[in-house]
């Protein structure tokens, strides 16, 4: 079984979010870039576990980005995976990215494609569904458990207010979230090994993005907390009722 894992680079969860050029550009200076946590902790690690268990034979990683993505994809290779493919393009919108990954997927003939449930920067949650539609295959979102049973995947996924277990034939796209696997830290052997793993760079196909970001805004600053004395908690209830009018 061949698995393709989609990897995206995102600013670290604690990065300061600021914009420049009339609020049209994200300030990338001084930002620490990481593998999108959902791609790393859940999608990639579960794929590695499936290979360790003998269920999967080959794991490829794919990312869409310019050469500045290479350190992040090398870091992913240090965790595991046999080779990485970088589509050499600026990322544009979800449709553009999904179309590039779909092209890689068609070339590679994968049985299973894992994505994270969303990226923590754009928060689109749309790559998985788009990719599945482009490839005309099923998509199971928000998976918390994944196993194979014969030729079918058994996937436990989150639904509103609970969980659902699905049985789905391959090929399949799965978006992964907490529960799929436990976070791992690359060891020295992995880090050394990652240097010699192939990182193939392919040129993008011609795709017109469907959307574009016109500008960014920061949320208005909070007015500051109104503190109530611990001796008078009933005053807080009064404020919530009469001033904030939320209870």
């Amino acid at each position: 079984m061949k698995i393709l894992v989609c990897i995206s680079k995102t600013p670290d969860t604690t990065a300061k979010i600021a914009f420049t050029a009339n609020n049209t550009k994200f300030v990338a200076e001084g930002v620490q870039w990481i593998i999108n946590p959902y791609d790393e902790w859940y999608a990639l690690v579960r794929a590695i576990e499936l290979k360790e268990a003998g269920t999967a034979t080959i794991i490829h990683l794919v990312t869409v980005g310019l050469p500045d993505c290479d350190p992040v994809i090398r870091k992913a290779l240090a965790l595991g995976g046999d080779e990485a493919i970088r589509v050499n393009a600026e990322s544009h919108d979800s449709y553009y990215i999904a179309s590039q990954i779909a092209e890689v997927a068609k070339q590679g003939g994968y049985d299973l494609i894992f994505t994270g449930k969303e990226t923590i920067d754009y928060n689109g949650s749309s790559i998985g569904g788009m990719l599945a539609e482009l490839l005309d295959i099923p998509y199971v979102s928000l998976a918390i458990k994944f196993n194979m049973e014969g030729n079918d995947a058994i996937v436990v996924r989150e639904i509103e207010g609970g969980e659902e277990t699905d049985k789905v034939p391959l090929p399949l796209v799965v978006s992964c979230q907490k529960g799929m696997a436990e976070q791992r830290i690359p060891n020295m052997k992995g880090i050394m090994g990652a240097r010699s793993k192939p990182l193939k760079v392919v040129e993008p196909i011609d795709v017109t993005p469907l959307t574009s970001i016109a500008s960014f805004d920061l949320p208005p600053a909070k007015a500051g907390v109104k503190l109530v004395s611990a001796d008078q908690p009933e005053e807080l209830v009064r404020l919530l009722h009469e001033e904030a009018k939320v209870i």
Binding site: G124, S126, G129, E160
Partner: peptide, 23 residues
């Protein structure tokens, strides 16, 4: 933008070549 919306709208975006904004 709930779980079902996300699962369907992303596919629909491709099928109709319709630009999508989530959230």
């Amino acid at each position: 933008n709930n779980l079902s919306g996300k699962a369907v709208a992303s596919r629909l975006s491709v099928r109709l070549k319709a630009g999508l904004v989530s959230g």
